[in-house]
Amino acid sequence: MPADFEDDSATDDTALIARFGGHGIDRDSAAHFRGRLERRLLIHRCDDCGRWHHPPRPMCPACWSWNITPTEVSGRGRIHLLMTLHQGPPASGVDYADGHPVVTVELEEQPALRFTSTVADGFPTDRLEIGTPVTLEWVDRDGTPTPVFGLGEDG
């Protein structure tokens, strides 16, 4: 990997695709992944009706507006889906021997607007359950900022 790889991928399409190819990146999700490089979780939001949607698409499914702005979310939400992987694709820092949690978090911005990731190291195991409030954190995975969830505040 060239030394300037990290610097280029914020602007250069080829470098961005190389970095996030495993995520199925395409033109419509490019802004979302560029946001990750700045440690900002950008979700597509419609300028006309205000509705959010994910995964990123070029047109608002609620009103057919093409005025879409990738917009930073608060990062707060609750665990909606939870599974623990005991096998899976190899990834830096992921150990399946103890089980790797995957959480789908319902973001506070809109009902059924969800983002899937894992939890931060040290997440209390007794709170790893559906309904637990969480908040966005960023960790480094092979030099790429990666959104994960830490324990949020009850309330």
Binding site: G22, L82, A91, T104, I130
Partner: peptide, 23 residues
């Protein structure tokens, strides 16, 4: 299937929703 662990699509989605059903 995407080669990343944090994915609740394709086959993995059924485990995620099975957990929701149980809950």
């Amino acid at each position: 299937i995407l080669p990343i662990p944090e994915d609740a699509t394709k086959a993995a989605a059924y485990a995620a929703w099975a957990g929701r059903y149980i809950h």
